[in-house]
Design a protein around this nucleic acid. Sequence first.
RNA 1: GCGGGUGUGGCGGAAUGGUAGACGCCGGGGACUUAAAAUCCCCUGAUCCUAUAGAUCGUGCGAGUUCGAGUCUCGCCACCCGCACCA
Length: 844
Amino acid sequence: MTDTRFDPSTADGRWQRAWDDAGTFAADSNSPKPKSYILEMFPYPSGRIHMGHVRNYTMGDVLARYKKMTGHEVLHPMGWDAFGMPAENAAMEKGVHPGGWTHSNIDTMKSQLKRLGFALDWTREFATCDAEYYGHEQALFIDLYEAGLVYRKESEVNWDPVDMTVLANEQVIDGCGWRSGAPVEKRKLNQWFLKITQFAEDLLEGLGELKDWPEKVKLMQENWIGKSSGLEFAFELSNGEKLAVYTTRPDTIFGASFVAVAADHPVSQSISIGNPNTQKFIELCKQGGTTAAELETAEKLGFDTGLTAKHPFTGADLPVYIANFVLMDYGTGAIMAVPGHDQRDFEFANKYNLPIPRVVAASIEDAAKPFDGEAEAGDGVIVNSDFLDGKSVVDAKADVIARAEQGGWGKGTTVWRLRDWGASRQRYWGTPIPFIHCETCGVVPVPKDQLPVELPEDVDFATPGNPLERHASWKHVACPACGKDAVRETDTLDTFINSSWYFLRFASQPDDAPFDSEEVAKWLPVGQYIGGIEHAILHLLYARFWTRALQHVGKLDFAEPFASLFTQGMVTHETYSREEDGRPVFFTPAEVNRGGETASLKADGEPVDIGRVIKMSKSKKNVVDPDDIIAEHGADAVRWFMLSDSPPERDLPWSAAGIEGCARFVQRLWRLFGQVGMGGAGADASGDKALDRKVHQTVAAVAEDIEALSFNKAVARIYELTGAIEKAEPSASRSEAIRKLILMVSPMMPHLAEEAWHKDFPDMPLVADEPWPEVDPALLVEDEVTIAVQHMGKLRDTLTAPKGASKEDLEALALASEKVQRSIDGAPLRKVIVVPDRLVNIVT
RNA sequence: GCGGGUGUGGCGGAAUGGUAGACGCCGGGGACUUAAAAUCCCCUGAUCCUAUAGAUCGUGCGAGUUCGAGUCUCGCCACCCGCACCA
């Protein structure tokens, strides 16, 4: 091996060990420095790291290393979101224990992360499947129970009768279980719920304070929480009962021409008793699909109950229908239908020949205007509505609500789309819910000194169903309250609870408590959180809720866990496929020879089709294993690729040519870094002012770019500076430029930086411990600027002028240009616009 | 349907209303070499051209504001993402 090439296969490991041995990235909560908590969403240990992880963690790593260089005490931890279904599926398919499978995956993935040289504080590592972690989680769950934020309720679930388990909605495909293929049954089970709805208003308002969250994520959460306000009121039915309905458009109440209830509404149920036709219709409603396409085309269907409802103002008798488009779990499960101003009601009224009165119009004069084939849901003036006529929609809403409240038949109400969080899973591989069911005492929390309730190791997955249900010695215990025979809760907690507080445990890890509030306060909220957009709603909303809940019970004194959020784009790749027997067969990039416009299969030399650039996925086989790339090019080239070109929020197309270019740049820097001594004795001692300027400008700009997470721009500037240094004559300035460049690239290419640093400056400490280069503000300004000269807005010439030249001087210089004079061609000057230090525009 | 985003060379992308295409990739030409690899240098939006010069066009489309628009305004188009019979 010669000096002229950087050899990552030896250097990477050398510096990774050096950082480990020195404890370089262990966070000290007692440090007097300002704290900076940089966190990337922790991975599920599925088996191996993929490129998405590499991109995510590289971004966080650059920021963490940069923050350390700029004088911060940095907390940059890593752990494992280790509970979940795949481990149980592996247990069922391969006969391995979920814990063993998970831990072996963790070992693999940890060594992969280490090979990338991430500046992580591994002393704080944990997996959520550690009894220590989930034991503390159980304690928190009991705290929330005692604060009234956890309750039990019977609710309907998707039940797979073969696997004997509850399925999430996503696991039900065409009405059948995704694994067993058996038709899914609806079952009522007692489930544990978290009262997230108690914080609905708070979670919504809190979004307003999250200045450094993407608007997109905030909007998605806002829609998910789904606040709407309107009027809830009761109709008197012809059978003497009352029927509560909810509407956001009380202003259109005079336009109501019928009333509709959901198929599973109590009114429908009571009508259907002894009435086969009604029962048949209710069954029909339940069959309807729920996919977007089905709903789009689904016909509005109704069943006349024969009942009527008395209109609160007109006293008219409105027919009451059971309708397939009314949902039981929103509002009251019943509506007043205003066909003129709601599209669904409009379609329904058309089908069943119900009146379609107009109560909103563009103006009073349009009160009789017919509808043009669809409902008009927009704004306007109220018409045909007695005392509301002429009012605006907003005023009419307020008026009707006020009259309803005065009359005592209704009240202004807020309705939320957000539902309480069903946290029960009939699964083994999760946090056991720490409760005991006693016939005498009811539901009793496990006393905290008996936590953790550990998962039993000796379980069997050969029989379908939850092994905890069948584990006699684990399940049967004495009631902690009365001592009589009792049984443990065998449900486990949704894994989203694991990820709702892990960031607190990273900050503080006492043995006897989930966390220490004072320690947590030193680090939290997380300064920068980075992860995928797929967690925009569930994980991020749950974590926000859990933090508020802990604040509510007095364990935290802040409400928002993540001050700044960044959602990065995906890593994508071309796909390679070939038609075989009428269906595409996909090939991995490794199986393909890729030419300029074409690709062929290595195995047989036959061409394959190059498909769209899409997210790397196993099913399309367009995956590249990070380990292979690291082995071939080293960690720094991969890291550099992850930061180059694409803005971090957009997708990053992986390419072999791209990574080769990065590897070449690593070597190019290595050669340049070897020239630091060229500025010694005999070289130009007066320095190179232009290069000094370029260096300081780049240091300032790269710092700005990193802080804005605009890594692609930082990369481009580093390329530019590299070229400038290479071209510069040897001088003290040039040597200093090289020294600063090493520091500047060190967050991105830490191994190369260390290797060069210690070769150039053998007695210096680790680059990782060096400060970010200082910037001299005086060197940020040029003393000469290039002025663009335009005639009628078109560029005709550029000229060089001293910075700060007067408008008059610039105008004179511009008019002296031969090219400009040729363009003006003797026309009289009408106006000259001068933008100092930038441009002159001559108008004729 | 509702909400959001994106649209710039062959590709990824730069650009406080002020020189469009920085930087990288691909491609072309050359140097070094017996040769190759590696490296270095030059060219690389389109069209015209009397060609070291110069001209015209050009940031999805169409208007507008402005001395000047990729950037601002209005109206369209295409693609992507999220949500959705939510009353």
